[in-house]
Write a protein that binds this DNA or RNA. Sequence first.
DNA 1: TTAGGGTTAG
Length: 683
Amino acid sequence: MLQVTAAAAASSLPPKPNLYPFQIYRNPIEPTQLHAVSLKTQTFNDPLISSRLISLYTHSKTTTLDHIRSVFDQFQQPTLFSWNTLIKSYVQNQRSQESLFLFLEFMTRSCLVPDVFTLPCVIKACSRLMALKEGEQIHGLVLKLGFRTDVFVQSSLVSMYAKFRDIGSARKVFDEMSERDLVSWNSLMDGYVKAGEIQLAKELFDEMTERDVVSWTAMVDGLSKCGKVDDARKVFDEMPSRNLASWNAMINGYMKAGDIVSACRLFDVMEDKDIITWNSMIAGYEINGRCSEALKLFAELLNLGYVPTHSTLVSTLSAVSWLALLSKGRWVHSYMVKNGYKLDSVLGTSVIEMYCKCGSIDSALKVFEVIPNKKLGHWTAIVVGLGMHGQAKLALDLFLEMLRTNIVPNAITFIGVLNACNHGGLVEEGRRYFDMMINDYKIESTVEHYGCLIDILCRAGHLEEAKCMIEKMPMKPNKIIWMSLLSASRIYKKVEIGEYAAKNVTEIDPKFVESYVLLSNMYAATGNWDKMSLVRDTMRKTGVKKDPGCSLIEYKDEVHEFTVGDKSHPQSDEIYNKLSEIRDRLKSVGHVPDKTQVLLHIEGDDEKETELENHSERLAIAFGLINLKPGIPIRIVKNLRVCNDCHSVTKILSKIYDREIIVRDNSRFHHFKNGSCSCMDYW
DNA sequence: TTAGGGTTAG
């Protein structure tokens, strides 16, 4: 009897250590070595050996996850340990979706029961994927299996719900926990922070009997995210110890508050920095409009040997886009290609956007075309970009192609589509896509969608209808919408509607210059000189001033900036000679300057004409004609809307100098080529 | 044997 029991026990136990090829746990061993030996000694399927093998593979830096998977697939009966290890590897390698698939396979195929190691892994996968439904299912499984008391499992659930912004469920799990560790406190607190409930976060923080650096950092982060950067600094100063994350949170807080000086002060005194520190600074400069500084930091970071992350590149590309530094953008893009960055949803979109905003729609298209299995972001970026560049037909063709590949558009895609319809003057299509968005895709229309549709109507001259729509739309019309109506009133000479629109703009933003400019230009265009001088008087009285026009052009890695009548450029003499040559050529083709649209207080026609001729974009064009070789497009970035006269002059120049001129104004691109412009004279 | 959760950029 005794003997039988011993034999049965022996057969269920793992073989004795001396039966193993070598002492697999004690000695350092390469996974490939163990793999080979296990095959030779036919111990490959031994539970201990196979578990150890998977573990060794996951720790080896040279083994890919797919290879580990192929080894795993050869096991006859993978152990729970092997399943857990593989599931975890997927999560760690940012392949959470596959880890959930694997978990599903585990549940259906393996006859094993998940344990306290399996569950936190899959819970984390759900929270990474923002998979609410799956997360709740796994929560159900946790309850069914009775892991209610396991602190690891429970705190994973708290952090998952916190990530989902489902603070109620997070709180519920937290309240039911029989014991709580620091992580559960911190997770819940962070949940409150993320949900913007700073008061509740603070209460929880005060309630905590023990705090670690993570708790303190979450508090710093929370306070600075709700705009209390001074309070955040107080907490930061009180902290018993700080780590990189704490410093980064504080820097980021300052940057979000627009306090670049304080952010820099911290950055400068920091001894250790990591890539997140640099990313925070670069993104901070970028959101505060200091794009040149952002690019400077990017260059410095590369010099110091840091490896840029996706986030670094997104901010950098964004800064490049703002400045429209095409050559810099190309450099960053080729850096990415050389270093094997994949153009995923986020990065691909950034690169496409960069080329669009730098005026090279051709490069954007080239990048778009070579991206394999394109995501919604890629499609949206190119549709929006084509719209911006006035290529309506291609934009809509691509949109339809996207629908054919069963990609579901979102609200932003439709902004691109409507914008494209607008540039192509496609009124009926615009209405149809607007309805399609609401009825077929159940996307709620925003003020931006209405803005596009109203601009479509305005552009086509349906001003009354546009006005009706503005009055009937379900949300409060914004400044842009009224400006759209005002701008069209100027073109179609509908003074009454224009005045009505201008009045509404002024109510929203009394200091908004562009509305005064448009109103005055509308009066000028309709010969209402008295009212025009009235507008100018109002501007003088309220102290509203027109921003000085400014144009940028990139040449040999340098940005050349011109303002109206600028004489500070080293090549100034040459530029003014070129301008007088331009004047003669314009005269010879019969161009008469449109002096009605000048809004500086200048008496006498001669002065007005000189003023026009020295508009910043003319200086930039002259500079381009002097320096850029024939055939190379002249790319200019302007801070304001292009004025009427400059627009018609640039059209003529594109023809007489046989030169493509691409101008980015404050909202769109104008491609001047062979005497016409891509905006079809509506802007 | 061996594996798990929380803070900072985007």
